[in-house]
């Protein structure tokens, strides 16, 4: 497990959908956005492998919190969003 609760993270701005068949559980609307790890949720077989019947190593999963108004530039200040994101989709924020 790489990230503890409270760690500032950024969701990778990557779109594997453009490169070929894939099964991604990271919503498009979060790619490239900044959040904070709320808490680790354990490790689960990588759905990106499971979907293609490949051997699926367990990957740490996190609940990551985002500011809701920052997602679509609308909404109420102070509202938040909580999303499960696998570790390989998160990178630490050096600027945080």
């Amino acid at each position: 497990m790489r990230f503890a609760a409270g760690t500032p993270v950024r969701v990778k701005r990557d779109f594997p959908e453009l490169r070929g068949p894939c099964h991604i559980r990271t919503p498009h609307y979060l790619r490239g956005l900044d959040g904070v790890v709320e808490r680790p949720l354990g490790a689960f077989p990588n759905p990106e492998d499971l979907a293609f019947a490949r051997p699926a190593p367990r990957v740490p999963l996190y609940h990551v919190r985002f500011a809701q108004p920052g997602l679509f530039n609308e909404g109420a200040a102070g509202d938040t969003l909580l999303v499960e994101i696998f570790e390989h989709w998160l990178e630490p924020r050096e600027d945080a």
Partner: peptide, 12 residues
């Protein structure tokens, strides 16, 4: 009151 949307995307 803070509204927290929970997007259920993975194993839970």
């Amino acid at each position: 009151m803070e509204l927290r949307v929970v997007d259920s995307t993975a194993d839970y």
